[in-house]
Amino acid sequence: MTKTNFDDALKQQLDTLPEEKHPERDLWRGVALALENEADTSTAKPGWRSGWAAMAASVALIAMVSWYSLQQPSGPTEPSAITGEALVQALSQQHEQQKQALLVEYTDTPALADNWQQQLDELDDAAAAIKAALAEDPDNPALLRMLQNVYQQQITLIERVHAPKWQRI
């Protein structure tokens, strides 16, 4: 076999080399722990805490933007079976039940982030601020959507810190 054959064969082999390879063990947990330690030892670097604080702040910001945009008389509001304070109450009650059920489910499951409850509290604060605004304007659809969004973020937070993807495989 000639040199040319080898060059061609090598090129062909290189072209078909897979771009990806699956590691045999989960590597994320070690990375996550290192990042968590880094966040604990460094106050300058944004980490878990400020990440979630930023999310809560952005929720409040979006709420404000939605608030102002919906103050414009653009059209009729969506009809709903229940409205106003009753709707807020139903939404909150349903969410609280779902949240408590999840917390019970994950009682014995170690959380990936040790400050997740603080993050949960921050989202609670955001929900309380939106509910206070709703008390003034109970039928505002943008505020209702934002409340729903914050509640959904709490559920996602609880699920993700207790059952991250690498554990679901």
Binding site: E19, K21, P23, L35, G47, S50, G51, A113
Partner: peptide
């Protein structure tokens, strides 16, 4: 860049196999 580790996990998932192939 803003410090969101959940987003980092997603970015990790998207690229870990290519990085591992290079490391291997």
């Amino acid at each position: 860049k803003g410090g969101d580790t959940l987003a980092y996990h997603e970015l990790y998932d998207a690229h870990v196999k290519r990085v591992y192939a290079l490391c291997y």
